[in-house]
Every structure is written in C-alpha cells, then in structure tokens.
Design a protein around this nucleic acid. Structure first.
Lengths: 210, 210
DNA sequence: CCTACCGATCGGTAGG
DNA sequence: CCTACCGATCGGTAGG
C-alpha cells in the first residue's frame, strides 16, 4: 500500500507538472487542456499529455470528461462567450461611437490578457471541431463581428467616422489587428493591457499620419 | 497488364483529385501539400492524403521527397521569402514613408492573393517545425518585421507620421491586420487585392475618424 | 482511478 | 512507382 502510493507519487513527479496535490476534476483537466492546446495546438496535444499534466493515467481521464473534442468545444465556446459578454454591453450602450470603440478595444485586450491561452484556442483552433459544432461557433463569431460593425456604422451615421468605402473590411481588419495580439502580447512585457489598448485605439481611430 | 493499368486509373479516380495525367514530381507534391496544409493544417493532413491527391501510393512519395517536415520547411521558407522579395525593395527605396507604406501594403496583399494557401502555411504553421528550422524562420520573420519598422521610423523622423508612443506595437498591429487577410480574403469576393489594399492603407494611415 | 488492452492510423522503409 | 510491411502512437473502453 505504502509502496503503491510511493510509485504513484513518483510517476506524478516524472510527469513533472501538477502543483502539489488536490483532487483531479473536470475543471483541472480543462485548465491543463487550455494551457497545452494554447501552447502546442489541439491536434498535436495527446490525451497522454493531458493525463500527465494532471497526474493520472490516460484512461482515467474519461471518468471526468467525455472526449477530446468535448474539451475543445467547451474551451472554444467559453472563450468566445467571454468576449461577447465583455463587449456587448459596450457596443449597445448610448455613448458616442468613438468612446464605445475605445472601450471595446480596451475590453478586448483585458479579456485577452487575462485568458491568453484560452483566446488562442478560441480564435484559431475552433476549425478542428466537427462540422455541427463548427456551425455554432461560426454563429458566435458573427455576433462578435456584428458588435464592432454596429459601432462603426453608428460612427459613420453620426459623422464621427469618415465615410468608409467598405465598413465590412474595416471591421475585419480591426478585429484581425486585435486578435493578432495573441501572437505578440506578453504578460511579462513592459506595457499593460490598458496601455496597449490605447496604442491600438489611437492607431485605429487616428491612424499613423500626423 | 491492361487490367493492372485499368485498376490504377480507377484508383486514381477514386482518390478523385489529380488533373488528367502528367508525371508526378516533387513540384506537384509540393503544390498539393500547399493546398492541403492550407485547407486543413499540417498535423491533420496525412501523407496518405497527399499521395491520394497526386495519384500514387503513400510509400511512393518518398521517391520524390525526403520527409513530411521537409515539405513544410520548403513551403514556409518559400512563402516568407516571397514577401521579403516583394517588400524589401519598396521599404529600401527613396520615396516618402507614406508612399512606401501604401506600396508595401499593396505588395503584401498582392502576394497574399496570388499565394493564399502558401501564406496560411507560412505565417501560421511554421510553429510545427522542429526547433532548428523554427529558428531560421524566426530570423526571416524578423527581417520582414524590420521592413515595416524602417518605414514607420522613417515616417516619424520625417514628420509624416505622428510621434508614435510605441512604434514596435504599431508595426505588430499593422502586420497583424495584414496577415488577418488570410482568414477573410476571398478570391471570388467583390474587391480586388488592389482595392482591398487601398482600404487597409487608408485605415492604417488616416484611421477611422473624420 | 488503475490494469490491460483495442482497432485505427501515423510517417516511413526494404526490396524489387 | 508498387508490394508489403514496420514500430509507434492515437483516442478510447471493459472490468474491476
């Protein structure tokens, strides 16, 4: 008995990852999956990597979860929802389009900074979902895009923004700029998410020219 | 003999893809690999998918190529090089920073439009390379970033651009915006690459505000 | 949560 | 370029 326990602890140490102890749960598994998918992407992370990270054997994962894809679905949907929840109230508020855009950009960067790896999975790895689940994600992404479209269109109507020849492209370019932060944002870098969001908002609103 | 030939032709038709005939070559294999990696990403495309696409059996691929990773290396390096070749002469020319930036954005969109799938692989899938090759790619990406940094810094010095509080972030955001086109550019869409590049250049230079 | 295992698929090779 | 095959690894399960 004591020996068995020792072996198990050793194995966990060889797997090298889990903090001290605490019970394995679905939440812990999802947390480690977010980290691993975010670092190395869904298709190249094996269930054995995840089981190593939480300190159990591969087959035992299925006591807590249903399938690998189920992990991905949950991560992706929760991730996109956190962006919708943060930005919808801003986009739908009564303030000027200029202020709403600044606030939306700031909210985006704050969510991104507090959930960097989840964002990487949510925005780039939903493509690995099977087609039924992919459709649900596409709908959520459209809602997200519409929030920015609303702000831009309101700003054009009110005369705050110039008459964009193609607002759709402007929205996609703006979102593309924001999402690119998953590739260059560093929590240990010199600029806070707030400071970064000001740089990005200035770029989007004022542009580079003097 | 005739029967064997018939069977082979049938098998190729079942694989369903290859245009008529023509000899299989390393170039053909690379072309199909670009398409498949671009559509579904490197780790989930099997050598059997590639051999099906070119109409031979999996083992026969290795007459023409060395390894799966070798395919990826060639695609990624050729892809990035096409961007460097297009933009370096512009960034290093004697024109104003404003004009150089417009031209660089246009050149970027033209390369992207003529090699959309190769761009997807080059900019997002180099992370699947083993570490030695990854380092080479990182150096090429730095050179690419420096081309835009030069234009922006020149523009600030000359007084064409405003005094950006953080030019590095502005460059990363700009490149992020351009690269996001791999996710939304459609060759069958209404706007030409030239038209798109004008929209993007206006956004980057003038911004959204009136 | 482990033991013990499953069929399927992976990139790649020897020998012709 | 095919035939025939390799060891390794994959996600997942039965039974305790």
């Amino acid at each position: 008995m004591a020996k068995q326990r020792e072996l198990r602890v050793t194995r966990q140490r060889e797997r090298g990852t889990r903090a001290a102890s605490g019970p394995v749960s679905a939440e812990l598994i999802e947390r480690e999956a977010i980290r691993l998918f975010g670092e190395r992407t869904y298709p190249v992370v094996g269930m054995r990597d995840i089981s190593d990270a939480v300190g159990i054997l591969p087959g035992s994962l299925y006591v807590h979860i249903n399938s690998k894809e189920d992990l991905l679905i949950k991560i992706v949907e929760r991730g996109i929802r956190s962006y919708l929840d943060a930005i919808a109230p801003i986009a739908e508020s009564e303030q000027s389009a200029t202020i709403r855009l600044r606030k939306a950009i700031k909210a985006h960067m704050l969510v991104l900074a507090t959930a960097l790896e989840q964002t990487r999975v949510s925005f780039h790895q939903w493509t690995y979902l099977s087609s039924e689940h992919k459709e649900r994600v596409i709908l959520m992404r459209q809602r997200y895009e519409e929030l920015f479209s609303r702000i831009l269109n309101d700003g054009i109507s009110s005369g705050e923004f110039r008459d964009l020849s193609n607002p759709r492209i402007a929205v996609l370019a703006l979102i593309g700029m924001l999402n690119s932060a998953t590739e260059w944002y560093s929590p240990t870098g010199p600029l806070s998410p707030e400071a970064l969001s000001e740089v990005l908002a200035d770029n989007a609103l004022i542009g580079l020219q003097k």
